[in-house]
């Protein structure tokens, strides 16, 4: 195809103008947003991902360990063997510590001491995102609160802001303390914050979070904005609680129990 000199100049002029504009645009308007996983056609999508934890279905120590181990293994969470350096994405504590505002010594026997699994609540109004000075932690369109390990400056403002104690800091190089490396997930460096990511890397491949998969139905994952989703069905037929009094609108719900397991 031939092109006249005049047209060429016109085109070149417009193009360079365009490049100029998009460059300014990049520099001033759309400063690169922190990385997100690109979702493939087979990826699972939602408006607001949420989790329901059914404590009735956690019966043995093994039920807890299974969900914790799988998460920490696939996400290369280091095990330092001491509390001072500790990094954890999912862990347990007893009911009275998980819900200090629900303290009630007249609860059915065993409830106060009952263990609950804890992880990031992926709040709809997340204080960690509000305080982060670099947007290294951000809320995705599907409601997941994600963390960019390469942008984080390690100021730990998010750790002070999180009312759920969900965030861990790499006080030292975590890599020597990863028992078995999963090459499919990034390891972290010292000096950055990390936490549960609702398995965004699995969602992108059409898989539910790993903890859900091994929980034997004790953990349910789904779209909170969809009235027909599994989580909504469970929430509409069971009484659930969450630490909601601080206005962060957490996306993790706990079903404590009823007659059948008392």
């Amino acid at each position: 195809m031939s092109i006249s000199r005049r047209d060429f100049l016109k085109l070149a002029g417009i193009s360079s103008l365009g490049i100029g504009f998009s460059a300014t645009d990049l520099l001033w308007k759309n400063r690169a947003e922190a990385i997100e996983y690109m979702s493939s056609p087979k990826g699972l999508t939602a408006k607001r991902w949420a989790m329901v934890v059914d404590l009735r279905k956690f019966k043995t120590e093994e039920d807890y360990n299974r969900v914790i181990d799988i998460c920490h293994r696939i996400h290369n969470v280091p095990d330092f063997g001491n509390l001072k350096d500790e990094v954890k994405w999912i862990w347990t504590d007893t009911f009275e510590h998980v819900f200090p505002f629900q303290k009630n010594e007249y609860l059915p026997e065993g409830v106060q001491e009952k263990k609950a699994v804890l992880f990031c609540n992926h709040c709809d109004n997340p204080p960690c995102v509000r305080v982060c000075p670099t947007k290294a932690t951000f809320k995705r369109k599907d409601g997941i609160v994600a963390q960019d390990y390469h942008r984080c400056i390690g100021c730990r403002f998010c750790m002070a802001a999180c009312p759920f104690g969900s965030r861990s800091f790499n006080w030292r190089d975590p890599r020597p303390f990863i028992k078995r490396l999963n090459p499919k997930f990034p390891t972290r460096t010292k000096g950055v914050v990390e936490k549960c990511n609702f398995c965004v890397e699995r969602l992108a491949e059409g898989l539910k979070p790993a903890c859900v998969e091994v929980s034997n139905g004790a953990l349910t994952f789904g779209d909170l904005s969809d009235p027909n989703s599994e989580v909504r069905k469970i929430l509409s037929t069971n009484y659930s609680i969450r630490k909601a009094e601080l206005g962060t609108r957490p996306s993790v719900f706990y079903i404590i129990g009823g007659d059948e397991d008392a």
Binding site: P133, R151, I153
Partner: peptide
């Protein structure tokens, strides 16, 4: 002291590269 407290002090310019007015730390800087 802020520099001494940072986990990744080499990334301090991220404060300037990604200015975030909803963070109090942005205003403090």
């Amino acid at each position: 002291f802020i520099m001494a407290d940072m986990g990744q002090p080499m990334r301090v310019m991220n404060l300037v590269l990604h200015p975030t007015p909803n963070s109090v730390m942005f205003w403090d800087a």
